[in-house]
Every structure is written in C-alpha cells, then in structure tokens.
C-alpha cells in the first residue's frame, strides 16, 4: 500500500480514493478526485491551471528547491528490514516535516515582504485621484480634508407653490 501523488494537482492520493487511468502505452495516471480527472480529460495543462501544485511551483509561489525534499524519494530497490533504522526514520520524518513547514512559512513571508508598503502607496494614489467620487471638489473648497459628508441626513427642499396653483393664480 502506497500513497500516490495526483497527476494533475500533485496532492496525496490515499488508498481507496480517486481514480486511475492507464493509457494504451501503459502510462499510469492517478487522480485524487473527479475534479482532477475531468480537468485531465479536458486536456488541460496542470502547469497552466492556477490551483495545481505544478503551477504554483512554476510561478514561484512555493518552495521548490530545498534539502528537505531530498529525503523523500521513491526507492525501487527493496531494503532489508531493520528495526533500528525504521525507528530512526520515523523520528526523522517528524523533524523533517517541522523544518519544511518552517521554511515554507519563511518563504511565504519573504514573498509577501513588500506587499504592505505597495498597498499603501496604491491607496494614497487612489485617495488622491478618486476622492471626487465621494466628496465633490466644491465641498473640498468649503471643507478641506478627507472627512466625508454625512450621508444619513435627509435634505428638506423648500418648494414655494405647486405648479397648478401657480397657473390658476396667473389666470386670475
């Protein structure tokens, strides 16, 4: 029993899950769920579909080159069982996992580093250019600053006399 990787999205496929397609050239395609299978059938390229691991790695969204990845590697030569070695390995897997998570979060942080200041700059520009949408330039003259006019107050408009009455008045 092995955990396999989904051909499309590279997620882990547990035994009893997903579907497997064997092409007539004997190449095996495993899919974690029908979504991936359908995408494959639509001949989509996982490198161009944003939600796949392949896309994220290709576009620098995730850690690609790291020593923690080198521990896990498919071995095609069977090893003779050794209890001590397995024990060590089980411990090592946890540690490696910790390190990997740490590095990934670090990578994310560095990737997001300039984001805040960038956003602020953009906000400043937007404020300057689009303030007229919420506050008229006339109002700015009367009351400079970014304080927005109050919205809730209903204006009472004074109307001197209804039209019909006025006409009657003229005729008289």
């Amino acid at each position: 029993m092995r955990l396999e990787k989904c051909w499309f999205c590279s997620s882990t496929v547990y035994p009893g899950h997903g579907i497997q397609f064997v092409r007539n050239d004997a190449k095996v395609f495993r899919f974690c769920r029908s979504k991936c299978h359908k995408n494959f059938k639509m001949k989509r390229n996982p490198r161009k579909v944003k939600w796949t691991k392949a896309y994220r790695k290709l576009h620098g969204k995730e850690l690609t080159q790291d020593t923690t990845f080198e521990f896990e590697r498919r071995r095609n030569r069977p090893e003779r069982y050794n209890r001590d070695l397995v024990d060590q390995t089980l411990n090592a897997i946890k540690k490696i996992e910790e390190v990997r998570e740490k590095r990934e979060s670090k990578f994310w942080e560095s990737r997001m580093k300039g984001k805040k200041s960038q956003e602020r700059k953009e906000a400043a520009v937007e404020l300057e250019q689009n303030i007229h949408l919420v506050k008229a330039p006339g109002a700015m003259v009367a009351e400079p600053g970014l304080t927005l006019p109050k919205q809730q107050v209903k204006m009472k408009v004074k109307v001197s006399m209804p039209k019909q009455q006025q006409i009657q008045a003229v005729q008289e």
Binding site: F71, V86, K95
Partner: peptide
C-alpha cells in the same frame, strides 16, 4: 515486526536510508 507503511501523509519506505541520521544532523 510489522513494517509501518504510511505516516503523516508520507510513504515511510521513501525515507528509509542507511545514513538518515547523518543527513538529519546536516539538516539541523
């Protein structure tokens, strides 16, 4: 002994390596 196969979403067989300790030290 029963050899475990899966742990935390990984195949244990993929990690089995004679010099695992040494490599782990290096990583740390």
């Amino acid at each position: 002994d029963i050899m475990p196969e899966i742990m935390d979403g990984h195949n244990i067989a993929d990690f089995i390596d004679a010099d695992i300790l040494q490599r782990l030290d290096e990583l740390e």
